[in-house]
Design a protein around this nucleic acid. Structure first.
Length: 222
DNA sequence: GGCCAGGTCAAAG
DNA sequence: CTTTGACATGGC
């Protein structure tokens, strides 16, 4: 089944031609930025809607921290409108860009490669609109730091399998990191596969795992 | 038309 | 510390 094997995450956006399934090679400064932008725009929003927003940013030649930073709020809002919460997200995106330009003029690639994971995570968390999941997504997919990303699918699937009940974000993360090989490649694949599984078999209103590839492993009851 | 989507923050209780 | 509401579009 196509759900298994390398997913090649993070998904594509305006740098589309440079990505392909299973590709984990070095990524460019602009690709790193695109992943950050996508991580912010996809908060509580389907990726389909984010893709439209990323395409709009690209079409308007507004795909760098510099250009987004000087883009008027109204215009930026229009560009990311399809991703929902657009006023809020435009502000968050701009705030992130402003921070980059002020505090890290060396650029994302250098900043990310020089910063230890927890330092980077803490710095990202201090910004408005970047919470634990977004910070970990950026740290893992844009910076290659080994920290497990916890999202709603990961929790839902784990809960339906009976792995855990209610845990704090940090406890969920600790649970996964204690039970997996501690490297970015593993965390990358696991999170990508969990999201894919979640989309297909573990929706909120579809508690049954009909046709679920987990098969017998799934202990989900009627 | 209702429910959902790869969250986060601020204001209450 | 836990709960609640606001933020908003587009797909099915």
């Amino acid at each position: 089944m196509a759900a298994f094997g390398p997913q090649g995450w993070w998904p594509v956006g305006w740098n589309k031609p440079l990505y392909r399934p299973g590709f984990y090679g070095p990524i460019s400064e602009n690709e790193i930025f695109e992943i950050c932008a996508g991580a912010i725009l996809t908060q509580n929003t389907s990726w389909k809607n984010v893709e439209k927003a990323l395409a709009a940013l690209h079409a308007a030649d507004t795909t760098s921290p510099e250009k987004i930073n000087v883009c008027p709020a109204g215009k930026l809002g229009r560009l990311v409108r399809s991703s929902g919460y657009y006023r809020q997200k435009a502000g968050r995106l701009k705030g992130f860009c402003c921070y980059i330009l002020r505090k890290h003029p060396e650029g994302l690639k250098k900043w990310f490669s020089a910063a230890p994971r927890q330092t980077l995570r803490g710095e990202l968390l201090s910004l408005k609109g970047i919470g634990p999941e977004t910070a970990d997504s950026i740290a893992l997919y844009a910076a290659g730091k080994a920290g497990f990303v916890i999202d709603s699918y990961t929790k839902r699937i784990s809960q339906r399998l009976g792995f855990a009940g209610e845990l704090s974000y940090e406890d969920w993360q600790a649970l996964f990191e204690a039970n997996l090989p501690p490297n970015a490649g593993t965390y990358n694949e696991y999170h990508a596969l969990l999201v894919k599984l979640g989309k297909e078999f573990c929706k909120k209103r579809k508690p049954l795992c009909n046709g679920c590839p987990l098969g017998k492993m799934c202990n989900n009851k009627k």
